[in-house]
């Protein structure tokens, strides 16, 4: 493995240092990624897109922070610190949307308003219960991907701190 300098610019996964350009681009790209994710989420009812894809895109934005700026910088985002809670909340939300129809006497996963019913539009977005379900999926995917990556990053950086500079602690002999 190539020698590295450990500093603010070190990536979370021990891949070496990053240049100023990468860091700046990573910072700038965070917001647009989130906007793109929300667009994918909202458009999912008339065009390709859904909560899953949106979650993946949004988590890619956060992953970029990890890779370019390192764990400490990435953890300054509150969503990164509380990713597991987000994932749990997303799953609960989706499950509730799926099971609440049971209380109303309909089968699981029934969506409201029923086909043909009156729908409120917000631009092109139809306000129907599947949107809530997809928001839950979005949170679940985002939370679990970010949470997993954060856990990896934390373990690796703890190991590196333990091993001290100069030894990545990750090398192995072939």
């Amino acid at each position: 493995m190539s020698p590295r300098t450990k500093g603010k610019g070190a990536s979370s996964f021990g891949i070496g240092t990053t240049s100023v350009l990468t860091e700046t681009v990573a910072r700038v790209l965070l917001l647009p990624t989130v906007v793109a994710a929300v667009a994918i989420l909202v458009k999912g009812y008339a065009q390709p897109g859904d909560g899953f894809a949106a979650g993946v895109v949004a988590s890619l934005g956060v992953m970029l922070q990890h890779l370019a700026l390192g764990r400490r910088e990435a953890e300054r985002l509150a969503v990164v610190r509380h990713a597991p809670i987000l994932a749990g909340a997303g799953l609960v939300l989706s499950l509730l949307v799926a099971t609440v129809p049971l209380l109303l006497g309909d089968p699981v996963l029934t969506h409201y308003p029923r086909p043909g019913g009156h729908v409120i539009y917000l631009g092109t977005l139809e306000l129907i219960t599947p949107v809530l379900f997809d928001v839950g999926i979005f949170l679940l995917v985002f939370g679990s991907v970010v949470g997993t990556m954060n856990a990896f990053a934390r373990t690796i950086s703890e190991e590196q701190e333990y091993a001290g500079p100069g030894d990545s602690g990750l090398e192995y002999e072939e």
């Binding site: 499950l95 099971t99 049971l102 089968p107 699981v108």
Partner: peptide, 22 residues
């Protein structure tokens, strides 16, 4: 009766989701 059908998986799943971050 169809409600009963969903309950075994449903209850466990929701409780699991709530407990996951705890």
């Amino acid at each position: 009766m169809t409600t009963l059908l969903v309950l075994p998986a449903g209850i466990a799943w929701i409780v699991a989701a709530v407990l996951a971050p705890m």
